[in-house]
């Protein structure tokens, strides 16, 4: 009788562990897929960035001091 009760307890513990593992596995699986979705959005955003850059191609880039000097040169013309 005692042995049977012990076996039942062990079975319950094993069942709980399996349940925990399944729940844990599902949780991390879902988290992973959400991350994947987010990465997908990032890719989409970069595409949007490119299209918005295309529409604003009239803006001068200010990466080098030469480009800044050229932009100043052109802008001074509009000072009255």
């Amino acid at each position: 009788m005692q042995q049977k009760m012990n076996r039942n307890k062990t079975l319950i513990i094993v069942a709980i562990i399996i349940l925990l593992l399944i729940v844990g596995g599902l949780y991390f699986y879902m988290k992973g897929s959400k991350k994947g979705e987010r990465q997908g959005i990032v890719v989409d955003t970069s595409k949007t960035e490119i299209s918005s850059a295309e529409s604003s191609e009239e803006y001068a880039s200010l990466d080098s001091s030469d480009q800044v000097i050229t932009e100043i040169d052109e802008s001074i013309e509009y000072i009255e």
Binding site: L62, S75, Y78
Partner: peptide, 13 residues
Amino acid sequence: LSREYVVLLLYDL
């Protein structure tokens, strides 16, 4: 606009 813009560009330099 050009005055303020040039001031910011000069500050960049």
